[in-house]
Design a protein around this nucleic acid. Structure first.
Lengths: 133, 133
DNA sequence: TTGACATGTGACTAAATGGTCACCTATTGT
DNA sequence: ACAATAGGTGACCATTTAGTCACATGTCAA
């Protein structure tokens, strides 16, 4: 109880870390290949967008604080490793219940488009509010 | 292709919308009971944190823009409905691959704690960088 | 019609965030 | 020892964001 793993109970930093496209790109890069240094990641990021080493470093630190990236210093270079566990946690503890419901809701796959284009419909099959007039 | 549902290709607003705890609370509230009005949601939110009607309204609009909440105006009140589809989408298109990998990585369930407490270890089983000294 | 109710709007402030830079430390190789 | 390399720090600025408020609109009910 008391020694319960600290990061388990606040997934907020994880969600916050995932909110930035550059950070998601970094995770994608590490997903493809683990253990890269800051310099390597900086180079990879700059194939997509322009950003200095410092910006990349800051993003990596945020990922690290969220537990999504684990690091190991080896000589003068710092290697970064993807840790997918926090993502799995927010999935289990939060996202899962929504995807289950969505699985039901989106039986008709094209439904979403229709839903988003008719702003005067409640847009969920069945389960209409029971018109308490 | 051309008419591909607009919101499918940028999940960024969805991640951004999920990055705030109040907005996640709103989704949780709508998950429990759909179709609530702004006033009702305001009251429910204020059981957890203090916020004016305007703040809640703003958050709801962001959720709406991300497609996570669909609305219908009925008389003078606006009803809010949860739409889990965008969450399912980011799950399929992004989160899924990480949770799969995490499923492998966390075969030992208690592993994560250990990993986070030994900052001088690469912390992923196998797949060590090949010590190119 | 009048007043209470439910919500929307635009301006505004305070705080958080993303990004850069000048400078620093530590490590490596010669 | 020296220069080159990899990275960290703290200050700094611009932009975004969260939140509130005064005010306006539309709706219901007497």
């Amino acid at each position: 109880m008391v020694t319960y793993c600290r990061s388990v109970l606040d997934d907020d930093p994880v969600f916050k870390a995932l909110a930035d496209p550059v950070r998601r790109l970094l995770l994608d890069l590490l997903f493809v290949q683990d253990g890269r240094s800051l310099g390597e990641l900086d180079a990879a990021v700059n194939e997509h967008t322009e950003m200095t080493r410092f910006g990349v470093s800051k993003h990596l630190r945020q990922l690290e604080n969220a537990g999504l990236v684990l690091t190991r210093k080896r000589g003068r270079t710092k290697h970064h490793y993807l840790n997918p566990v926090p993502i799995q946690q927010i999935h289990q503890r939060w996202i899962g219940k929504y995807t289950e419901r969505a699985g039901i809701a989106s039986v008709l796959l094209g439904m979403k488009e229709q839903l988003e284009q008719s702003p005067d419909e409640p847009k969920r099959p069945g389960h209409e509010p029971k018109d308490e007039s």
